[in-house]
Design a protein around this nucleic acid. Sequence first.
DNA 1: ATTTCGGGCTGATGGGTCGTCAGCCATCGA
DNA 2: TCGATGGCTGACGACCCATCAGCCCGAAAT
Lengths: 227, 227
Amino acid sequence: MSEVTATTAPEDDDELRAADGRVPGRRGRATRQKLLEQTADMLQTTAFRDLKVVDIARGAGTSPATFYQYFPDVEAAILVLAEEMAQQGMGLSESVRARSWKGKAAYASSQELVAEFLTFWETHRALLRVVDLATLEGDQRFRQARTRFQNELTVSLSEVIESLRKEARQPDDLDSMATAGVLVSMLGQVAAHRWGFEFWGIRTDDTSRSMARIIYSAVSGQKPPAA
Amino acid sequence: MSEVTATTAPEDDDELRAADGRVPGRRGRATRQKLLEQTADMLQTTAFRDLKVVDIARGAGTSPATFYQYFPDVEAAILVLAEEMAQQGMGLSESVRARSWKGKAAYASSQELVAEFLTFWETHRALLRVVDLATLEGDQRFRQARTRFQNELTVSLSEVIESLRKEARQPDDLDSMATAGVLVSMLGQVAAHRWGFEFWGIRTDDTSRSMARIIYSAVSGQKPPAA
DNA sequence: ATTTCGGGCTGATGGGTCGTCAGCCATCGA
DNA sequence: TCGATGGCTGACGACCCATCAGCCCGAAAT
């Protein structure tokens, strides 16, 4: 009858919880981790929509019911992986802030930004594809994660644009966030469809160079280098 | 709209066929059309993944089994709609070719291209979202339709770039298809996430202007107008 | 060492969707 | 009027999802 005792008071509500409200112990957290890893592995080879809970659970050496104890659905598990990745993605923004965008150095910085972005995308391509997908499908959880990551980069780029506003002689009413957002969108879309480009005989090198020139122009307001 | 006397043998193999190999008559084609319209209607209000065959069939005043007589699956029906839309999309390429890209006129042309593209996207947003989605999911049929449409625009833009190569003083080895592809990607991605931008307080006007300037710079090689 | 107890796990199951097929209905030419 | 062929559908088997009652197990308590 007496359900509430002093020992069961949920004082820490940000604590990790299982589906039934229990606080997982060591063993449980290990299982949860194994499920996450298995999900990440399968994502490398299996299309998002073909990911079956039963397969993930089986691959992790457990049963579907166990999966549901730690995640409400497959997307929730992927979301955890996405948040981890987004954390790493912050490094791109820091990189943008650390570089020099004065004078000629800006072109090199543009090139490096493109290269870093494409590398990051390639490293996490499976996850990023799912994030884009779920966002397009209207999933708010993923939209938020995606936005948080992209916005970080957008803000740092817009700060660069803002700091060069005078040198670039841009109109006072030009919105630096808009420009930065457009550039980040460009990077994201091209990275996502990189192989589509190559299918049409367009080399990644050429694509990268085009983007670097575009970024350089948009940021510095200067004509890109002739060679 | 050419009427072939329907009594003859199936000599034309590109003729429309039902699932069982029959050649649909008047009544059948009307039903097929009704199913297509119903699909288009539902797409306006229902997420792609939530489109049930039974709902489409019911809405068209028929049964699921009938739907399968004319389309192997929901995606096939949407694909038909997408091809129709892609046909309309060719107008964008023609528009690009028709405009003047010499001197100052190029900036106005850039602005108009952006406006036209965004308008087109808004008009067909439900369909285009599904096309993007299915392509991301790896559906080859949709990838092809998407590519055909985008590539048309890319080629026309690359021709413009090519024709201005000397005036723009661009490096000889700069790939105009790569640049054009990047620009089209940018347009597509921004159009798709337009409302995401607005959520962050970025006005569509500002976004459009940023894109117009970027396109102008990339095409003409000139600094965009100060005002 | 034994008991106890709660976290951890799963087999079995009900609900739901999908695509198909055998067979009924409608239309039209003869 | 009467086939004959195109058009349509009810019913069905196969499959996947998510859940829950109940068993297992290890560690703390005695």
